[in-house]
Design a protein around this nucleic acid. Structure first.
Length: 214
DNA sequence: CACCAGGCAAGTA
DNA sequence: TACTTGCATGGT
C-alpha cells in the first residue's frame, strides 16, 4: 500500500466534501460519552441519548459518575445496548475518578500511547473507542479505524478483507501519513461521511460516489 | 417485514 | 487461534 494512494484518497474526499468539523459535540466530555454510546449504533440514536442527558443538565463528569447505573441505563435507552453501555461508561468514569480525581484535563494530558493503553484497559473500550477518545476528545495523534474504513479500503482494493485487522490498517495510515491531529481528524470524518452517503448499498458502490474510478 | 447502525467481550471448538 | 453470539433501539 503506497503512501501516495492514501494521500490521494484524502485529497479527493476533501476536495469533494470540504471540512467536516468533527467530532460533533460541544465538549471533550461529550465526545468521550458519545464515543462509547455510538458503538455499533446509528449516530441518530446516539444524539437522542446525548440530548436527553443534556436537557437534564447531566452531561458532566461528577453528575454522571454519581448517577446510579440503573438510572443512567434508563436515560441512554434510545441508543440501544443501554445496560451494556451504562456499565461501560461507569467503568470509564471510575478510572478517571480513581486515578485522576475526576479531572478530565489531567487524564488527557499524557503521552498518546499511554492514554490509549489506559483506555484500552477499561472493560468495554476497544481499539476504535479508545482511538476516537484519544484523537477527538484528547486531541492526540492516533488514527481511528472503523467498519467504514475497512469497507472503503477493501472496495478500492487497498486492503484484502482477510488481512484487515484493526491494527494493521491503523499502522498503514500512521506509517504513510504525517502524525498530524488535524489530518487524522479530517480523514476519519471524511471516511464516515463518504460511507454514510454513498455506501448504503451492501456490496457495491453507488453510481455517483465521488470515489468512482479511484 | 427484514436489515442495518461510527463495537466489544465472552463463549465455543 | 478462529468463528459465533449477545447486547437493543429506531430508521429505512
Amino acid at each position: 500500500m503506497s503512501a501516495d494512494r492514501l494521500l490521494e484518497l484524502f485529497n479527493r474526499l476533501q476536495d469533494h466534501f470540504g471540512p467536516q468539523h468533527w467530532w460533533p459535540a460541544e465538549t471533550p466530555f461529550e465526545i468521550m460519552v458519545g464515543a462509547v454510546l455510538t458503538q455499533n449504533t446509528n449516530w441518530q440514536n446516539v444524539t437522542k441519548a446525548i440530548d436527553g442527558l443534556k436537557s437534564l443538565g447531566l452531561l458532566e463528569f461528577h453528575l454522571l459518575d454519581s448517577l446510579p447505573i440503573e438510572e443512567l441505563a434508563r436515560l441512554i435507552r434510545p441508543c440501544g445496548y443501554y445496560n451494556l453501555k451504562a456499565r461501560r461508561l461507569k467503568n470509564l468514569l471510575s478510572l478517571i475518578r480513581d486515578n485522576y480525581h475526576g479531572d478530565l484535563e489531567l487524564f488527557f494530558d499524557q503521552e498518546v500511547g499511554d492514554l490509549r493503553q489506559e483506555l484500552l484497559a477499561v472493560k468495554g473500550i476497544g481499539p476504535e473507542t479508545a482511538d476516537s477518545i484519544t484523537l477527538y476528545a484528547a486531541g492526540k495523534p492516533t488514527f481511528v479505524v472503523d467498519t467504514y474504513t475497512l469497507r472503503i479500503l477493501s472496495r478500492h482494493d487497498m486492503i484484502w478483507e482477510d488481512e484487515a485487522d484493526y491494527h494493521s490498517v491503523q499502522e498503514m495510515f500512521m506509517d504513510s501519513l504525517p502524525l498530524d491531529v488535524a489530518l487524522f481528524n479530517e480523514y476519519h470524518a471524511l471516511i464516515v461521511r463518504t460511507a454514510k452517503e454513498y455506501c448504503k448499498k451492501k456490496n457495491r458502490c453507488c453510481e455517483d460516489c465521488p470515489l468512482n474510478g479511484f
